[in-house]
């Protein structure tokens, strides 16, 4: 078999492996999702039900909640594989490690990022967002959350096996999430006045994603080699 097709096969096997593992441990999956739902639902309870205020804070809250939910799941990205030695086997695979890393990140996004995108409209209803804004929010989350998973993977790899790695991870990764937060929330805010105005925000988010897609797997692979030494 040629190099490229074995690479694709390895990629597919790793994605399926992580999805199967998650299906056998569904609680982990649901924690992230419920965390997002609860955080978003707490704000109307605390701030009050003034529609104008809610509509104004909705984009920021949805995105901050998405960042935190994505953070929450990051720690588990490599920790399990590190503990049982399967990560070591991945480091010794005859495929570029960045391909394996990308497979793990894709699976992680499918399990923690995509559910947030799908649940977002339901959550947005509490904030009295228009249908157009909800659509933009979904789109922005769809483009933005892969960046969160990709960038987060670097942090997860760097803090692997460290004591108190969880806290360190958030200190390391949350600042890197800021651009996604600004433009993600910006897109939703802009959509309140005009849907057409959201285009530059979405373009920038796409740019971030492509940038992360190119660099993050490679950086994560390097970090994993250092952490597992």
């Amino acid at each position: 078999m040629s190099g490229k097709s074995t690479m694709l096969r390895t990629f597919r096997v790793i994605v399926m492996r992580d999805l199967t593992l998650a299906m056998r441990r569904r609680t982990d999956l649901l924690t992230t999702l419920f965390f997002f739902i609860i955080v978003v639902s707490l704000f109307p309870l605390g701030v009050g039900t003034e529609k104008a205020i809610l509509r104004q804070i909705a984009p920021g809250i949805a995105w901050v909640a998405a960042l935190l939910a994505s953070m929450l799941a990051l720690e588990r990205l490599f920790a399990g594989d590190f503990q049982d030695g399967t990560l070591e086997q991945m480091l010794l695979a005859p495929q570029p490690l960045s391909v394996l890393v990308l497979a793990k990140v894709v699976a992680h996004w499918l399990l923690t990022g995509l559910p947030l995108v799908l649940i977002a409209p339901l959550v947005g209803l509490q904030y009295d967002l228009s249908a157009g804004s909800l659509g933009i929010m979904m789109l922005a989350l769809l483009i933005g959350t892969p960046t969160l998973s990709l960038v987060g993977a670097i942090g997860a790899a760097l803090t692997l096996g460290l004591r108190g790695g969880g806290v360190l991870l958030s200190l390391l990764v949350l600042p890197l999430y800021i651009p996604v937060l600004i433009y993600g929330a910006g897109a939703v805010s802009a959509s309140v006045t005009s849907i057409a105005d959201t285009q530059p925000y979405l373009m920038l988010l796409t740019g971030f994603m492509i940038f992360a897609l190119v660099l993050a797997p490679w950086a994560t692979a390097a970090a994993l080699r250092i952490s597992s030494e």
């Binding site: 492996r17 056998r24 503990q83 049982d84 030695g85 070591e88 010794l92 695979a93």
Partner: peptide, 27 residues
């Protein structure tokens, strides 16, 4: 092929699934 202190198998997967993945990772 490296067999270390850790078994390098996933507890939630069956022996067959573990070996299928291990074989892919061993090339």
């Amino acid at each position: 092929v490296y067999l270390g202190h850790h078994n390098g198998i996933k507890d939630d997967l069956t022996a067959e699934e573990n070996l299928t993945i291990a074989a892919v990772l061993d090339g």
